[in-house]
Design a protein around this nucleic acid. Structure first.
Lengths: 200, 200, 200, 200
DNA sequence: TCTTAACCGAGACGGTACGTCGCGTCTTTTG
DNA sequence: CAAAAGACGCGACGTACCGTCTCGGTTAAGA
C-alpha cells in the first residue's frame, strides 16, 4: 500500500546506481566527499537523472546515510537483566564511536541547524525519515530489553524507554562529541549500575 | 603578564574587525554564513589580511565561535545541594538548546570528522582551544557545585566531575541532538535526583 | 567539411561573447587589460564558462589575438616587380608599427620565453596556431609577389620566400622594436632595391 | 662627473644586494621570476629599502637587465672585411638566441607597449637607458667594423651604421622572434654577402 | 664623543587577479 | 520520454604579487 511501485525499471536502476555510489563515497571518505559531481562521475549517472531522484545534495546525503547505517539490532544472548543491558550499552558505545553513525548524527544536526527553507515538504520528510531511523536504532533495542526486564509484566511505557535511552546513551554521546574520553567497558558498567539502582 | 604585546597596533585593529564581523554573521545566520568573502566585505578588511590572521575558513570559524560563546558561569544562589544542582542543569539545558552552543558543538564535530590534514599544528591548536573552551563550560560549573557538595571535604576528583557532567549533560545533549524532545524542568529534576541517589 | 558543427548552440554563444569582449579589451587597452575578470565582467559570461573554453589567460589571449589580427593580404595593384614589392614592404611597415600586430609578436615572444609547462598539448597548439597565423601574414604576400616575379617560371622555393621575408621585414622589425627609428617610405625603397640587386 | 657618489655606504650595500639577487633570479628563471617578493626574500633586503632604490617592478627589472646584459663587444681577430663582418654577425646570431638578450628585447617591448604612465620621468629614463644599452650593443661593433672597412677613410655616417645593423641583425631577429628558424652560419654568410654586394 | 637623522629589517595592509571546485538549472542528442 | 552528456551562471575558496604604510632597531655623519 505504501510501497510505491516504480513504473519504469530504468528509474530503479539509476536510483540504485546513484545510491550505491553515494554510499561508497560516504563510507570511504566521509560526507564531505559525497558531492553531486563525485556521485555522478562514479555512478555513471547523469546530473539530470540524479536530480530527478534527489532534489538536493542534502536529500541525497540523507538517503545515503539511511542506506549506510547499520540496523544495529540487539546483541544476542540471555542472562540476567544487568548483563543484557550492559551488552547493549557496550554495543552502543562501540557504534557511537564508529564513523558512520557519528557522522550521521553530526551531519543531521548541522543540516538541521542551517535550515534554509524551513518547510520544504519533501526534503523535510527525508531528513525526518533519517532521524526516525536513527532514533529507532536507539529506542528499539532498549524497548526489547526493558520489556524483558519487566518480568511477566506488560510493555514498558514510551517515556521509560526514551529516558533509558537518553540516560544510558547520552553520556556516551557526550564523551564522544565533547570530551573525547573513551567509553570503555567499565564506564558502561557504571552507567548501567546507576541506572538499575534507580529504575530496577 | 603572559599577554604578548603586539608591536603593530594594526594587527589588533584588523583582527578585531574581522572577528566582530565574523561573530555578527555567525550569530545572525549560523556558521554557513561565515564565509571569507562575507567577512571581508563586512569588516572592510582585505582578503589577504584576513588570511594573515586565519589560514582557513576553519580557523576563522573556530575563533569566531570562541569569541561568541557565552562564558556560561554558574547560576547564582545558595540553598541545599539538590537545588543548586538543579539550577545548574536547567541552565545547561537552556544553553544547549540555544543556537550558538549547539552550533559550536556540532560544527566542531563536523570539522573534526573531516580532518583533512591530521597534524596542521596551528589549526589543530585552534580547534583544540575551542574544544577546551567548550569542555570547560561544562566542567567548570560542575566542579564548583560538586566542591560545595562535599561539605567541608576536599576537592572532587577529576573523574567525579567528568562523570557528573557526562551523566547530567549527556542526556540533555541526546535529546537536543537526536530525539528532539524538549528538556523541561521536570526532566532535569529527574536527572538530578537520579544522580544524587547514586552519588549523594 | 572539416568544420565541426557544435551540438549545443550555447557553446557558440558564450564563446563568441567571450572572444568579442576579449578582443575589445585587447584593442582598447593592450593585452594587459585582457584579464579573466575583465572579460567575464564585460561579456556577462561566468568565470567557469570561460575556463571551459580557455584553460588559461594565455590561451584566451592567444585566441583573442588571432581574432583581432587583420588578415593583411596583398596590397592590390600591378606594375613592375619593384613597385609591387615596394607596396608590399610599405604595407608591412605600416602594419608592424600598428599596435595589434606588434603587441601580438611581442606578447607571443614573452609567453614563449616563460614556457612554464613545455608540453601542454592544447595550449601549445593554440600558441602554435597564433604563430602560424602571424608567420603566414608575412610569408603569404611574399609568396604571391615572388611568384609573379619569376615571370612565367614556376613557384618560388620555400627558402626563397622565407629569406625574402626575413630580409625585408627583419629590418623593419629591428627598427620598430629596438632603435625606434621610423620605417619611412624611402627606407623601404632602399631595402627593396638592395634586395632586388641581389635576387633580381 | 656623472658618477653620483653615495653619501651613505649602506645605500650601496643594499642596492647591490638587491641587484645581484635580481640578476640571479633573472638569469635563472626569466623575468617572470623577478618579483619584488622574491628579490627581497633572496637578498635579505626589506621591501621598503627596495622601493627606495627602485620605484617599480619595472624599474627594478630594467636595472637588472642592464646589469645582466653582456657587453658583447667585438669578436677579436683581423682579416679581410667580409671575414670580420661575418664573425660579428655570427656572434650576434648567437647572442640573439641566448635567453638574456632576447628576454631583454622582448620585455622592453612589452613594457613599452603597456605604457601606463607615459611620462614618468625617472622610470622613463631607466627604460631609456636600457634601450640605449641594447642599441649600443648593436651599433658599437658595427661602427668599429665599418670604420675599418672604409680603409683609410673617415668615420662611417650614422645612417650607414644604423642601416647596417638593421639589415644584418634584423633578419636574425625576425627568425628568432617569428619564424623560429635557426640562424646558422651559412645563413649569416648569405646576409653578409648580400650586404657587401650593395655596400662594399 | 654624542646626538640625531637616515637607513634598515620586518611585515601588516588594501587591492587585483588567478585558477579551482561545487552547486542547481538548463539544453541537446541518443536509445 | 528517460537517460547521458555536459554547458551555464553563480558563489566561495586559497594563492600570489603589487605598492603603501607603520614599526622599532641600528648606524653613519655632523655638532
Amino acid at each position: 500500500m505504501t510501497t510505491q511501485r516504480s513504473q519504469d525499471p530504468r528509474l530503479d536502476r539509476s536510483r540504485s546506481a546513484i545510491l550505491s555510489a553515494a554510499v561508497a563515497l560516504l563510507s570511504e571518505g566521509g560526507f564531505k566527499q559525497v558531492t553531486i559531481e563525485a556521485v555522478t562521475a562514479r555512478s555513471g549517472v547523469a546530473r539530470s537523472t540524479l536530480y530527478r531522484h534527489f532534489r538536493n545534495n542534502t536529500e541525497l546525503l540523507a538517503a545515503a546515510f539511511q542506506e549506510l547505517l547499520p540496523p544495529l539490532g540487539l546483541p544476542a544472548g540471555g542472562g540476567p537483566v544487568r548483563q543484557r543491558l550492559l551488552r547493549l550499552v557496550v554495543a552502543q558505545a562501540g557504534q557511537i564511536e564508529s564513523a558512520p553513525t557519528m557522522a550521521a548524527v553530526v551531519w543531521m544536526a548541522t543540516t538541521g541547524l542551517s535550515a534554509d527553507t524551513p518547510a520544504d515538504n519533501d526534503e523535510r520528510s527525508r531528513l525526518g525519515a533519517l532521524r526516525e531511523h536513527i532514533i529507532e536504532n536507539y529506542r528499539g533495542p532498549f524497548h526489547t530489553v526493558l520489556a524483558e526486564c519487566l518480568a511477566a509484566g506488560g510493555a514498558p511505557s514510551e517515556r521509560d524507554i526514551d529516558e533509558a535511552a537518553a540516560q544510558l546513551v547520552g553520556p556516551l554521546l557526550f564523551n564522544a562529541l565533547i570530551t573525547r574520553r573513551p567509553n570503555d567497558k567499565r564506564y558502561c558498567a557504571r552507567l548501567v549500575d546507576d541506572f538499575l539502582a534507580n529504575h530496577g
